[in-house]
Protein backbone atom coordinates (compact mmCIF):
# COMPACT_ATOMS: atom_id res chain seq x y z
CA UNK A 1 0.00 0.00 0.00
CA UNK A 2 2.70 2.50 0.97
CA UNK A 3 4.53 1.61 -2.22
CA UNK A 4 1.48 2.51 -4.26
CA UNK A 5 1.23 5.76 -2.34
CA UNK A 6 4.86 6.59 -3.06
CA UNK A 7 4.34 5.83 -6.73
CA UNK A 8 1.27 8.02 -6.80
CA UNK A 9 3.13 10.91 -5.18
CA UNK A 10 6.00 10.49 -7.64
CA UNK A 11 3.60 10.46 -10.57
CA UNK A 12 1.92 13.62 -9.31
CA UNK A 13 5.27 15.36 -8.84
CA UNK A 14 6.33 14.45 -12.39
CA UNK A 15 2.99 15.56 -13.82
CA UNK A 16 3.03 18.89 -11.99
CA UNK A 17 6.58 19.43 -13.25
CA UNK A 18 5.41 18.82 -16.80
CA UNK A 19 2.46 21.16 -16.37
CA UNK A 20 4.59 24.21 -15.55
CA UNK A 21 7.07 23.70 -18.40
CA UNK A 22 6.42 25.79 -21.50
CA UNK A 23 5.46 23.77 -24.57
CA UNK A 24 8.80 23.77 -26.40
CA UNK A 25 10.97 23.73 -23.31
CA UNK A 26 14.04 21.59 -23.10
CA UNK A 27 15.64 20.27 -19.97
CA UNK A 28 19.23 20.77 -18.90
CA UNK A 29 19.70 17.07 -19.71
CA UNK A 30 18.95 17.80 -23.36
CA UNK A 31 21.47 20.64 -23.40
CA UNK A 32 24.03 18.36 -21.79
CA UNK A 33 23.41 15.71 -24.46
CA UNK A 34 23.76 18.35 -27.18
CA UNK A 35 27.07 19.63 -25.75
CA UNK A 36 28.34 16.04 -25.49
CA UNK A 37 27.34 15.32 -29.09
CA UNK A 38 29.27 18.38 -30.28
CA UNK A 39 32.25 17.76 -27.96
CA UNK A 40 32.69 14.18 -29.19
CA UNK A 41 33.56 15.45 -32.65
CA UNK A 42 36.73 17.09 -31.30
CA UNK A 43 39.67 14.76 -30.68
CA UNK A 44 40.59 13.82 -27.11
CA UNK A 45 37.14 14.36 -25.59
CA UNK A 46 36.52 12.10 -22.61
CA UNK A 47 33.83 13.52 -20.37
CA UNK A 48 32.64 16.70 -18.71
CA UNK A 49 34.11 17.76 -15.39
CA UNK A 50 32.42 19.83 -12.69
CA UNK A 51 35.83 20.75 -11.23
CA UNK A 52 37.05 22.09 -14.58
CA UNK A 53 33.74 23.88 -15.04
CA UNK A 54 34.07 25.56 -11.65
CA UNK A 55 37.63 26.67 -12.37
CA UNK A 56 36.60 27.97 -15.80
CA UNK A 57 33.65 29.81 -14.25
CA UNK A 58 35.70 31.54 -11.58
CA UNK A 59 38.78 32.47 -13.64
CA UNK A 60 39.40 35.32 -16.02
CA UNK A 61 40.51 34.38 -19.52
CA UNK A 62 42.50 37.36 -20.73
CA UNK A 63 39.72 39.91 -20.36
CA UNK A 64 38.62 41.86 -17.32
CA UNK A 65 35.60 39.73 -16.43
CA UNK A 66 35.06 36.11 -15.46
CA UNK A 67 31.63 34.41 -15.44
CA UNK A 68 31.64 35.01 -11.69
CA UNK A 69 32.06 38.77 -12.12
CA UNK A 70 28.33 38.97 -12.83
CA UNK A 71 27.00 35.59 -11.64
CA UNK A 72 29.03 35.68 -8.38
CA UNK A 73 31.27 32.91 -7.01
CA UNK A 74 28.12 31.06 -5.93
CA UNK A 75 25.66 30.72 -8.83
CA UNK A 76 22.93 29.73 -6.35
CA UNK A 77 22.76 33.44 -5.52
CA UNK A 78 21.41 36.31 -7.54
CA UNK A 79 24.15 38.11 -9.42
CA UNK A 80 24.63 41.68 -10.54
CA UNK A 81 25.64 43.02 -13.93
CA UNK A 82 29.26 44.16 -13.48
CA UNK A 83 28.59 47.43 -15.27
CA UNK A 84 24.97 48.42 -14.71
CA UNK A 85 24.35 46.65 -11.36
CA UNK A 86 21.12 45.17 -12.71
CA UNK A 87 20.14 42.08 -10.72
CA UNK A 88 20.69 38.75 -12.50
CA UNK A 89 18.63 35.77 -11.32
CA UNK A 90 20.53 32.69 -10.08
CA UNK A 91 22.18 30.68 -12.85
CA UNK A 92 22.08 27.23 -11.22
CA UNK A 93 19.20 25.30 -12.84
CA UNK A 94 18.31 23.45 -9.62
CA UNK A 95 17.85 26.79 -7.87
CA UNK A 96 16.23 28.64 -10.78
CA UNK A 97 14.28 26.18 -13.00
CA UNK A 98 13.94 28.81 -15.76
CA UNK A 99 17.61 28.34 -16.62
CA UNK A 100 18.59 26.06 -19.52
CA UNK A 101 15.06 25.63 -20.84
CA UNK A 102 15.08 27.85 -23.94
CA UNK A 103 17.66 26.97 -26.65
CA UNK A 104 17.50 30.45 -28.21
CA UNK A 105 18.27 32.09 -24.89
CA UNK A 106 21.04 29.65 -24.01
CA UNK A 107 22.71 30.20 -27.37
CA UNK A 108 22.29 33.99 -27.19
CA UNK A 109 23.87 34.28 -23.75
CA UNK A 110 26.74 31.85 -24.36
CA UNK A 111 27.60 33.79 -27.53
CA UNK A 112 27.55 37.18 -25.77
CA UNK A 113 29.16 36.19 -22.51
CA UNK A 114 31.89 34.02 -23.99
CA UNK A 115 32.79 36.96 -26.24
CA UNK A 116 32.97 39.26 -23.22
CA UNK A 117 34.96 36.86 -21.05
CA UNK A 118 37.17 35.03 -23.58
CA UNK A 119 36.92 37.19 -26.73
CA UNK A 120 35.87 34.04 -28.61
CA UNK A 121 33.11 31.42 -28.68
CA UNK A 122 33.16 28.77 -25.94
CA UNK A 123 33.90 25.21 -26.98
CA UNK A 124 31.32 22.45 -26.40
CA UNK A 125 33.74 21.04 -23.79
CA UNK A 126 33.71 24.35 -21.88
CA UNK A 127 29.93 24.65 -22.07
CA UNK A 128 29.49 21.07 -20.88
CA UNK A 129 31.96 21.52 -18.04
CA UNK A 130 30.20 24.69 -16.85
CA UNK A 131 26.75 23.11 -17.00
CA UNK A 132 28.07 20.04 -15.14
CA UNK A 133 29.42 22.38 -12.45
CA UNK A 134 26.17 24.37 -12.30
CA UNK A 135 24.23 21.14 -11.75
CA UNK A 136 26.23 20.39 -8.61
CA UNK A 137 24.82 23.55 -7.02
CA UNK A 138 21.63 23.44 -4.99
CA UNK A 139 21.50 19.63 -4.83
Amino acid sequence: MSRINTLLVLLLVVMSGLAVQPACAETFGQFMAEFARSAKSSPGFQSFSAANGEQFFKSTHGNEWSCASCHTEDPANSGKHAKTSKVIKPLAPLVNPERFTDPTKVEKWFKRNCNDVLARACTPQEKGDVLTYLLTIGK
Partner: peptide
Protein backbone atom coordinates in the same frame (compact mmCIF):
# COMPACT_ATOMS: atom_id res chain seq x y z
CA UNK B 1 25.21 45.70 -30.69
CA UNK B 2 28.15 43.28 -30.74
CA UNK B 3 30.22 46.10 -29.24
CA UNK B 4 27.69 47.75 -26.96
CA UNK B 5 29.56 49.95 -24.46
CA UNK B 6 32.19 47.27 -23.97
CA UNK B 7 29.95 44.21 -24.00
CA UNK B 8 28.51 41.92 -26.64
CA UNK B 9 24.76 42.53 -26.75
CA UNK B 10 24.19 40.98 -30.17
CA UNK B 11 20.69 39.85 -31.16
CA UNK B 12 19.11 37.65 -33.79
Amino acid sequence: LDKHFGTDASLE
